[in-house]
Nucleic acid binder design. Structure first.
Lengths: 218, 218
DNA sequence: GTCTATAAATAGATAGAC
DNA sequence: GTCTATCTATTTATAGAC
């Protein structure tokens, strides 16, 4: 009789409470990201995690609590490396040196790689945005807003240097993020087979950075 | 006793079959766009339409059929004015005259206005993309693909004229659509109160067109 | 064309044995 | 920590009266 997990590799012995909790969360992220909150059943999650539904409800009081717990789990998983652009030394050097291409190229490439490597979370983010779940608000407050301020501040400095045209920096940021996020969104949602456009992350980052910088240079 | 519709203005007399069908569809679009397919109940739709659930199932055999019927309904509602860029005379003239700014500005402005005026359908489109429903595939085939070809062809001509740099046209299209769609997406999903960036459609279209055209000009 | 009432299926959540 | 069995609420869908 199959009792042990079917999707996880750890088999043979019973997990500790924390291990099981983490495992359920990892599975839940995948399932929720596929079908959204209301499209996902606790039964599905239980099956994918290789446990009974009752176990789910021992670790999480309600389905909603499980969904919300994903936020913290992800936050911990990423350590404190939210706001990645501030910790990356290549990025810091490029900013220091006012090497515009390196700043924008590295940011684009980092984002594209991150999106590609965590499609599940990207989908979860869009689901939560449509559902108006708090996860979406947190993403906005803790990630999007700081990013706009950080990039906006850099652009403002370069405008003061006379290196960029006097366009509202936030609009420039939106244009740039638009290229990047929309490209990832296409890859994830509509053009999974890359029929419409099939380019490497490196090439995309290079083109986007060039278009933007030529677009705003003086 | 309240029997007549609570959300529709036509009251007093009983509707014809077709009228009722259309009314249910209009209501369904709104509700589905808010909560997605699995997040929406037929009871909700019935209540919002001011009819009993049984009526819904008289007009549509299943909930899924109702969801799918939205596609045709929208297609008819838009008449044959899909691919709007090919029918707009201002747009045609601008293309004829090779007035790049007018071409890109008008396209951006038209799209932004359209998104703003049909938020429900935009949300529906994203829901269906995450759900991998056929509506999303149709959008890709019938709208996105032709748009890439159309804009891509224009860019190719301008490259042949020596007016634009030799960058893969599809990448340029993606960058441009990215600015536009991501801007609308922000307005609809994350920045509904416009705290992050509050600009008119005209200003957004102008900035995006300028950034793109300077970005790719020779 | 519309309703009330209800069947049938499925969802989330709990109890109690091991 | 995990299971089987079960309860309750909700949801889709149908029947039959008006």
């Amino acid at each position: 009789m199959i009792k042990e997990t079917q999707t996880e590799t750890i088999t043979g012995s019973r997990m500790s409470g924390d291990e099981r909790r983490s495992q359920i969360l990892r599975v839940a992220i995948k399932i929720f990201s596929q079908s959204g909150f209301s499209g996902t059943t606790t039964k599905e999650i239980a099956r994918a995690a290789g446990v009974s539904e009752a176990i789910i409800f021992r670790h999480f009081a309600t389905k909603k609590e499980l969904y919300s717990a994903i936020i913290n789990f992800k936050a911990c998983e990423n350590g404190e490396k939210l706001l990645p652009w501030e910790e990356n030394s290549v990025e810091r050097d490029a900013i220091e040196a006012k090497d515009d291409f390196q700043v924008f190229y590295n940011m684009a490439l980092g984002a594209l790689r991150h999106h590609e490597g965590d499609v599940d979370f990207m989908r979860l983010l869009f689901h939560s945005a449509l559902d108006e779940h708090e996860l979406s608000e947190m993403f906005f407050e803790q990630f999007l807003t700081p990013l706009y301020e950080f990039l906006g501040a850099y652009i403002r400095r370069r405008q003061a240097d006379g290196a960029m045209r006097e366009v509202e920096p936030k609009i420039i940021v939106r244009a740039f993020l638009g290229m990047i996020i929309h490209h990832s969104l296409n890859n994830i949602l509509w053009d999974k087979s890359r029929r419409l456009l099939n380019i490497s992350n490196e090439e995309a980052a290079k083109c986007f950075a060039e278009i933007l910088l030529n677009g705003v240079k003086k």
